[in-house]
């Protein structure tokens, strides 16, 4: 399905238009997370205050992502068991991609923008974050540059996010056909959109999918970092991301 183009420009696939409508307002997400972070931590711990805040920020960002997924077409039709399987497969990729797109919109190379609106200089990350997190941030910045050069737009971002959500092999799900159909429609919508809107860049679709491979690699590295912090007893108790990390896959 396609929308009608009133301006005479290329049309946008209906699936992408629907996804754009589901996209949460960054201001609202920021306000909600800032509100949560201002509440006192339930489990006081020995971590530095900044690291504890970052953990809670990541938890709350993931809760926003779950809220988005629950409103997504197809996903909302699935049983909770299938919904859990999909999110357990891609939670870290969705978090990484959320971070990446925020940096693309932010557009500054020397610093990063947190979901709370705070700007952090990369020199501060280098000085205070430890080498594992610093390397992770730098690797993410390389992907930001790559996607910026590719001119990733909001339409492509929402479609890629949907593709990440539905990237699990359907053999692990009870409702195979619905999910397979969603995967195929999202792929087709992205291909059509890129060909229509970026005819001078014929391989944009393939380039974008290749970037998802790097998102996955980054998410693996991020999970290794989380596990390292967990083993060092540095994570807060009742941390959602650690629970996701430890949960059995599918």
């Amino acid at each position: 399905g396609y929308s009608e183009s009133f301006s005479g420009g290329p049309t946008v696939p209906e699936l992408i238009l629907q996804l754009l409508q589901l996209e949460p307002e960054e201001d609202q997400v920021r306000a909600r997370i800032l509100g949560c972070l201002q509440e006192p931590a339930k489990n006081r711990s020995d971590q530095p205050a900044a690291f504890g805040l970052l953990c809670r920020m990541a938890d709350q960002t993931f809760i926003s992502i779950v809220d988005w997924a629950r409103r997504c077409m197809v996903f909302k039709e699935l049983e909770v068991a299938d919904q859990m399987s999909l999110l357990q497969n891609c939670w870290s990729e969705l978090l990484v991609f959320d971070h990446i797109y925020r940096q693309i919109q932010y557009g500054k190379e020397g610093s990063i923008l947190l979901v709370t609106g705070q700007e952090v200089e990369l020199s501060t990350v280098a000085a205070q974050a430890g080498s594992l997190l610093h390397n992770l941030v730098l690797r993410a910045q390389e992907l930001v540059l790559q996607l910026h050069a590719l001119q990733l737009d909001r339409q492509e971002f929402v479609c890629l996010k949907f593709l990440i959500l539905f990237s699990l092999d359907v053999k692990f799900l009870s409702n195979h056909s619905l999910v397979k159909d969603a995967q195929e429609k999202a792929n087709a919508a992205l291909l059509d959109y890129t060909l229509c809107h970026y005819p001078h860049c014929a391989d944009k679709f393939q380039q974008l999918l290749l970037c998802l491979v790097e998102v996955r690699a980054l998410s693996v590295q991020a999970k290794e970092y989380l596990y390292h912090k967990h083993l060092g007893n540095e994570m807060p108790r009742n941390n959602l991301l650690i629970e996701m990390l430890q949960a059995r896959q599918t």
């Binding site: 809760i63 779950v66 809220d67 629950r70 909770v80 068991a81 919904q83 859990m84 999110l87 357990q88 009742n238 959602l240 629970e243 996701m244 430890q246 949960a247 059995r248």
Partner: peptide, 23 residues
């Protein structure tokens, strides 16, 4: 506290379960 299915993250189950969300 809410328990997810065996081996599944309980917090995620709570976030996704419609009956739990309604309550």
């Amino acid at each position: 506290p809410c328990q997810g299915p065996a081996g599944r993250p309980a917090i995620l189950y709570t976030l996704l379960s419609p009956s739990l969300m309604a309550s």
